[in-house]
Design a binder for these strands. Structure first.
Length: 552
DNA sequence: AAACCGGGCAACCGCAGAAGT
DNA sequence: CACTTCTGCGGTTGCCCGGTT
């Protein structure tokens, strides 16, 4: 950083810092005599490099050291130039708009920082990467969704028939993102950028087999939790009708899913059940749901409208303790959620896990990220992109699509398994459920998609979201949040009839900040004529690592 | 006031593809 | 066609700084 550079710069010959390391490329300098400097760049070096580039232009970086006297390897020069010296670099914190875009792009691309940087003028891949890594750290600690709900929503609407099955052009650890055919086309981003980077929200439901999404999604997200690919199997097909992604439509900013009163299969009724418009649906007048942008944990920020005004605030990219919750729910990690991370990263062996050789659990944060990204992408691939007008969104559409599935998922997950692993049992349960589903489906865990064609899957006909609490999960009482929820169930089987109860519980559980935000959400939603019912689902904030079968 | 800790960031490293010879 | 070099990318590391204890 400049601070570091300034400390050691000026008058200090570059070679002073030459360490035992020679050039890092091995292909430059030659003749061992050129011991290349490493470490922070000095202003003098910067000046030399800039001068060189002015004269010779970019490229041929290995020649820099030869011609300019810089004791830096070509790679280092290129990096320095690209990340710090080249003109038009945008310094400073990411704007909320940029942050949102990054999230969207990451949801689409995974860890393709360079490609992401291409969509963020003035930003470097390194910058984006650093931002993202720190961000996800925070969010993981907080047990919050990796992606803001809006990103999820937008994602599914953004990829319409353009996704191809191919790709595999990318290398590295992210390959499985592409392996599963989630390549994003630039046109998507073009349109994205054209819309101020906001992907159209398309609320309508496709007839996507829920199980396909389950297979793809459930485990793939460590943060999106029980990715509730809540697609009513019986739902009539709506050609080219994307649906809100997963449970995002009913996930509040803190990553809590909302579901309640699933009384009917029709979207209208469900829409009424959810009164879905507040946090995620700004309303017909709002085209884009940007409600996650840096709203404050104290509830001062409104989710009812896009926060475009904040875009220019140049907030510190990662230092917004007050705004974190509002933005995407990032917050200091509640102790409870910390524990969640622990068992996410180190799950006990289970039969379900054993059935799948590769586990996202073992990979830690990055894998979790990738899985969630893949999940987002996969869900995105399930839906066709059609409308860019969010005004067409009906609460029912979202609720129907996402909450139902999530509801179902949880029901099955919790009802299925009795785990001896305590808190980890939830994860195990998920795995077991998915394993079971895979066997039931008699389909390969992985599914391929060609364009909009989604392989249909057997439907769990027996699942009836309209069924009452009989299908509610058998809670694993070893988890505090489940205990909390369980307690709530006892008090209010109606799911959401007493929002304050859960709010208080959340406050106890998550601490003031998160709880404040939660209250904000619940208060906001409870004011609507319908009950969100999200209160039922605080444990949905638990990372979803259920999808073991989807591993590459 | 000092020690500790975590966040943020710049830079490095290794790998792989592209381009050149 | 094979080899070498260049370039780019993604992951990781190490340092500095600010906040907390």
């Amino acid at each position: 950083m400049s601070l570091m550079i300034n400390k050691i710069e000026d008058g200090e010959p570059p070679k002073d810092q030459t360490g035992p390391q020679l050039n890092d490329e091995g292909n430059e300098g030659n003749a061992g005599e050129a011991i290349l400097k490493k470490g922070p760049w000095t202003s003098a070096e910067d000046a030399i490099l800039m001068d060189y580039v002015k004269k010779h232009g970019e490229g041929n970086w290995n020649a820099v050291q030869k011609h300019s006297g810089l004791f830096r390897c070509g790679k280092s020069c290129r990096l320095r130039w690209a990340n710090h010296l080249r003109p038009n670099l945008k310094k400073g914190a990411f704007t909320p708009e940029e942050e949102r875009l990054i999230a969207e792009l990451h949801a689409k691309m995974g860890n393709k920082w360079a490609r992401m940087a291409a969509h963020l003028p003035g930003r470097t891949d390194n910058e984006i990467k650093n931002y993202w890594n720190t961000r996800i750290k925070r969010r993981q600690r907080a047990g919050l969704p990796l992606y803001p709900p809006e990103v999820s929503l937008e994602n599914q609407g953004s990829q319409h028939g353009q996704s191809t099955v191919t790709n595999n052009g990318d290398r590295g650890h992210c390959n499985y993102l592409q392996d599963t055919s989630y390549e994003i086309h630039d046109s998507v981003f073009d349109s994205l950028n054209a819309n101020q980077g906001l992907l159209p929200y398309v609320p309508e439901l496709p007839d996507i087999p829920a199980n396909s999404i389950l297979l793809k999604g459930l485990g793939s997200s460590q943060y999106c939790n029980f990715l509730p690919s809540t697609i009513p199997y019986h739902h009539k097909r709506l050609p080219e009708s994307p649906m809100p992604f997963l449970g995002s439509s009913v996930m509040n900013r803190n990553g809590f899913y909302f579901f309640d009163h699933i009384q009917d299969n029709t979207s209208d009724q469900i829409a009424q059940s959810f009164g879905y418009h507040s946090p995620l649906d700004p309303g017909p007048s709002s085209q884009n749901s940007l409600c996650y942008s840096h709203s404050l944990s104290n509830g001062t920020s409104s989710t009812s409208k896009p926060n475009f005004e904040a875009v220019k605030l140049e907030l510190p990219s990662l230092q917004y303790p007050e705004t974190d919750l509002g933005s995407w729910g990032t917050s200091p990690p509640p102790p409870l959620l910390e524990s969640v991370d622990v068992f996410i990263s180190t799950p006990p062996p289970t039969s379900a896990m054993e059935s799948d050789s590769s586990s996202p659990y073992n990979s830690g944060l990055l894998d979790a990220l990738l899985y969630q990204a893949k999940n987002l992408s996969s869900s995105k691939n399930h839906y066709s992109d059609k409308s860019s007008n969010s005004s067409t969104a009906t609460p029912g559409d979202r609720a129907d699509s996402s909450t139902l599935h999530m509801y179902e998922t949880e029901c099955e997950d919790y009802a299925d398994c009795v785990s001896p692993f305590g808190a980890t049992s939830i994860l195990n349960d998920c795995l077991a459920v998915n394993a079971k589903r895979n066997s039931l489906d008699e389909q390969p865990p992985r599914q391929t998609f060609s364009g909009d064609i989604v392989k249909s899957e057997p439907v769990y006909q027996d699942f009836n979201p309209t069924s009452d609490n009989q299908t509610m999960p058998i809670l694993n009482i070893t988890r505090p949040d489940v205990l909390l929820a369980s307690d709530w169930f006892e008090q209010d089987s109606g799911c959401g009839k007493n929002p304050n109860f859960m709010t208080d519980s959340i406050a106890t559980l998550l601490g003031d900040d998160l709880a404040t935000d939660y209250k904000y959400i619940t208060a906001e939603t409870s004011t609507s004529s319908q009950v969100w019912g999200l209160d039922c689902c605080t444990w949905n904030n638990m990372p979803a690592v259920c999808q073991m079968s989807d591993l590459p």
